[in-house]
Amino acid sequence: MKAIGLHHLGGSESLVYEETPKPIPKNNQVLVQVCATAITPTEFEWYPTSHTPEGGKRPFPIILGHEFSGVLDAVGSDCTDVQVGEHIYGLSDWFINGAQAEYCLTVPAHIAPKPITLEHTQAAVVPISALTAWQALIDRAHLSAGQRVLIHGAAGGVGSFAVQLARRQNAHVIATASPANIDFLEALGADEVINYQITPFEPPLGTWMWCLIRSEAI
């Protein structure tokens, strides 16, 4: 199969478009024919990119890209809840080769049916940003109805999902953004959008916030 391999630690200059063996799924894994994958520039610097879970060095070349959308090409014998041909999106383990290739491996717990309203190119960029927002607001902050949340960088990947999730929880959503993104965030459900270029976004003394999300590019 064709893949983009990382041949040494560095930037884009260390990537090579090349032929590499097609992976074979273990009993608990599925093989995905990749239709689209997302690019995360900081992945060059992530610990799992160059290390094993035990702390050893991973051998080069290494395939990056750990969120994707595609079609199930093969399933292991233990994977009874998924079927070949299903259109899915999801994540792969960051300690194994990723999805900047024609095929990648993952496990059923890390995938879900692709929404029919999304193209593969759209679905591929959802998992990391959406999961990060969910973990911050739901798993950690336990955001609920009526609570106030301030989301910085709300028009970005994580921020835009955070706005929608907070709205879904019926929280009072305050977002910061540049003027170009105010209408976009109001359409997503923000109750207040602050133009950080001209308006201080610090809450007035005595105003209580349940949580604050600082969203930055990853």
Rank of each mutant, 00 (worst) to 15 (best):
K26A: 09
E119F: 00
F44Q: 10
I111S: 07
P23Y: 02
F44K: 13
A175N: 12
V125K: 00
Q135W: 08
E54Y: 07
K57E: 15
T199E: 15
Y17C: 09
H110L: 14
V125I: 13
E102H: 01
T80H: 14
H66N: 13
L212D: 00
R58C: 13
R214M: 13
P48G: 07
T132C: 01
R167N: 12
Y196S: 10
L165Y: 15
T106S: 13
H8R: 14
V71N: 10
H142W: 01
E54W: 10
I39G: 08
R148H: 07
A171E: 11
T20P: 00
A38R: 05
I4M: 14
I116P: 00
A177M: 07
L91G: 05
A190P: 03
H110C: 04
F161S: 10
P59G: 13
H7F: 13
D183T: 14
P127T: 03
I218R: 09
V71T: 15
P127A: 06
V163K: 08
A133E: 06
L9Y: 12
Q164K: 15
Q83I: 06
D81I: 04
Q33P: 06
L105H: 01
H51S: 13
E186F: 03
V193Q: 10
F184V: 06
E45L: 15
E186C: 04
A177C: 09
V126D: 01
A112N: 07
H66L: 04
E186P: 01
L137W: 13
A141K: 11
L150H: 10
Q164H: 10
G146L: 05
F60I: 01
F44R: 12
F68R: 00
L188G: 09
E86K: 07
I88P: 00
I213T: 04
Q83R: 15
P41K: 07
T37R: 00
D183P: 03
P59R: 12
G65Y: 08
V193S: 09
A180W: 08
L118H: 10
H172L: 13
L91Q: 13
I116G: 00
W134G: 01
L131V: 05
R167F: 02
P179R: 03
D81L: 11
L91N: 11
A145H: 04
W94D: 01
G157P: 10
H51P: 00
A187F: 01
T106I: 03
Y47W: 14
L9A: 13
H120Q: 03
H8V: 05
I218Y: 10
H120L: 01
H8E: 08
A187Q: 04
P25R: 01
D78W: 12
F184T: 02
G98T: 11
Q197I: 03
E13L: 12
V193H: 05
G157N: 04
L105C: 05
S215L: 06
A145G: 12
A141D: 06
I116N: 07
H87V: 03
M1C: 01
S12A: 14
V173A: 02
S50V: 13
V149L: 02
I151C: 04
G85C: 09
C104M: 08
R168A: 15
A99E: 02
S92G: 10
A38W: 07
